[in-house]
């Protein structure tokens, strides 16, 4: 080996690994969307003090934030099939759990984990909106839902975006652990490639650069969204 870093090899690896980027993005984006729905719902349940649902949300938050993502992933991966098996046994309804692709478990695990954090983000963002905004909405005759969707949510979303961006960048990195449950994404693909060539350093440098590039692109996208949504917002004057 003449050079410490073989650049032509790195380039080839880069090209080879490009095929795994869609998997990583698919995992991250779908999990983020599902987690946003769960997070928003459980934030509302908590803020509106809806009985029973509130208790469920509280337990979910405790577990979701306390359990490491990888452990969560394993629990979903090994636990969900058993749950479905029992369900099939008891009811005779075939869930076809043997045929569920590991990708589904990966998304479920990441969603459960991320949703708990998003709950807190949405809760704080909604709480930061002056309660006079909802009162004004109700006073002109809107329903609670109209007021929430048209007024509160849109203001809260703007508050939440930078935090959501953070969470999403973290989630992109978290997708790298789904390799452990046999989903081959960017890191998984790189591991396989490096085993074949023994060029670990080059391969992982390429992977690092690829994660970094993805992060930068999304950071910019979130910033753009923040600017676009924030036209009504006063500039910070610090």
């Amino acid at each position: 080996m003449s050079n410490i870093l073989e650049f032509s090899f790195m380039w080839d690896t880069f090209i080879h690994l490009l095929q795994f980027i869609p998997v990583t993005l698919f995992l991250a984006i779908i999990s983020m969307i599902l987690a946003s729905i769960i997070g928003l719902a459980s934030a509302i349940v908590q803020l509106r003090n809806i009985p029973i649902l509130k208790q469920i949300a509280t337990v979910y938050l405790l577990i979701g934030r306390a359990v490491p993502t990888m452990v969560m992933l394993y629990i979903v991966y090994f636990g969900l099939p058993i749950l479905l098996l029992v369900f099939t046994d008891k009811t005779g309804i075939d869930t076809g759990y043997q045929h569920i692709p590991p990708m589904v478990f990966a998304i479920a695990g990441l969603t459960v984990h991320t949703g708990a954090y998003l709950t807190e983000i949405f809760r704080a963002a909604i709480l930061s909106i002056d309660k006079g905004q909802m009162e004004a909405a109700l006073s002109v005759g809107m329903t609670w839902f109209q007021g929430f969707y048209r007024i509160i949510f849109r203001q809260a979303a703007l508050v939440a975006i930078p935090l959501l961006a953070n969470q999403f960048l973290g989630l992109i990195k978290s997708t790298s652990i789904v390799f452990t449950i046999t989903v081959i994404e960017l890191l998984g693909g790189a591991k396989i490639a490096s085993v074949e060539t023994y060029r670990y350093l080059e391969t992982y440098l390429v992977v690092a650069i690829m994660y970094w590039s993805i992060s930068i692109i999304f950071e910019k996208l979130f910033l753009l969204a923040e600017q676009k949504l924030g036209i009504f917002k006063k500039e910070a004057n610090i």
Binding site: Q133, A136, G141, M142, Q146, F232
Partner: peptide
């Protein structure tokens, strides 16, 4: 209602603030 602290919808322009109740409600 007219509020002590105005409570205009912060994410809406002056015009949209007035339109909101008309169009939505």
């Amino acid at each position: 209602m007219v509020f002590q602290t105005y409570n205009l919808f912060k994410n809406k322009t002056a015009l949209e603030n007035i339109m909101e109740g008309l169009a939505i409600v």
